[in-house]
């Protein structure tokens, strides 16, 4: 699995992501600046890490979604390539139309920086197969705009087609519709989620709850 990590101005969680990828994949991802128009040859997985791309101007992820590199990401996804977006990366993927729905301001208006628990809604995907079906794992979260929303028909379709990846298993602190913390594209190859599995991949940092995501991908 060859990974490429996208860097937009204002992204600040790339180092955690690089470390998680290096640990599971055996090598670090290629770093791709947002002004590039092509992905490195042989890229299997594109990763959009968290942060505050373009200062969250207009809407979180709105500017990054129209960066030059996103055309290449669209083509990559169109060919069935894998894409992972975490936190701001998830927001960018919804703004780019690669995942349905949108992330609104947290229902309680506060920026939430704490640990949460996520349930694995399906353990038969390239992203989640190293978890047991129905597993619940700890994941740090840190966001101001994580309140997932979509039209009722879209939410029904996501649930009907098994495209909900993760749900908040403890409190639904940000107010997300149907407790949704992460969703898949219809072909299960694009995943976006708000919490940060990459921040819990080493016992020194308190646990390895997020490691199955990267181990699952490494085996693809």
């Amino acid at each position: 699995m060859q990974a490429a990590l996208l860097l937009f101005p204002g992204i600040n969680r790339e180092r955690d992501m690089i470390q998680a990828v290096r640990q599971s994949f055996g090598r670090a991802p290629a770093i791709v600046w947002h002004k590039e128009t092509e992905l490195p040859a042989g890229t299997d997985l594109v990763i959009l890490p968290g942060g505050f791309s373009f200062g969250d101007y207009l809407r979180c992820g709105a500017m990054a979604a129209h960066s030059p590199v996103m055309r290449a990401v669209r083509e990559h996804a169109g060919r069935g390539g894998y894409v992972l977006g975490v936190c701001n990366g998830f927001q960018i993927l919804t703004e780019a139309g690669l995942l349905p729905g949108a992330l609104l301001r947290n229902a309680g208006l506060r920026f939430l920086s704490m640990e949460t628990r996520l349930s694995v809604e399906r353990a038969d995907t390239v992203f989640t197969r190293n978890w047991a079906p129905g597993a619940v794992f700890r994941a740090p979260m840190a966001h101001g705009d994580g309140n997932y929303t979509a039209r009722t028909e879209t939410l029904d379709r996501l649930e009907g087609e098994g495209l909900v990846a993760f749900r908040y298993a403890d409190e639904n602190r940000n107010g997300s519709a149907r407790r949704i913390a992460g969703v898949f594209s219809p072909n299960l190859r694009v995943l976006g989620l708000m919490p940060h599995p990459e921040d819990l991949v080493d016992p020194l940092l308190g646990g390895t709850d997020g490691k199955p995501l990267f181990d699952s991908l490494a085996a693809a």
Partner: peptide, 8 residues
């Protein structure tokens, strides 16, 4: 295309 997000 940009100024509004039609989803919300």
């Amino acid at each position: 295309k940009l100024l509004a997000n039609p989803v919300i």
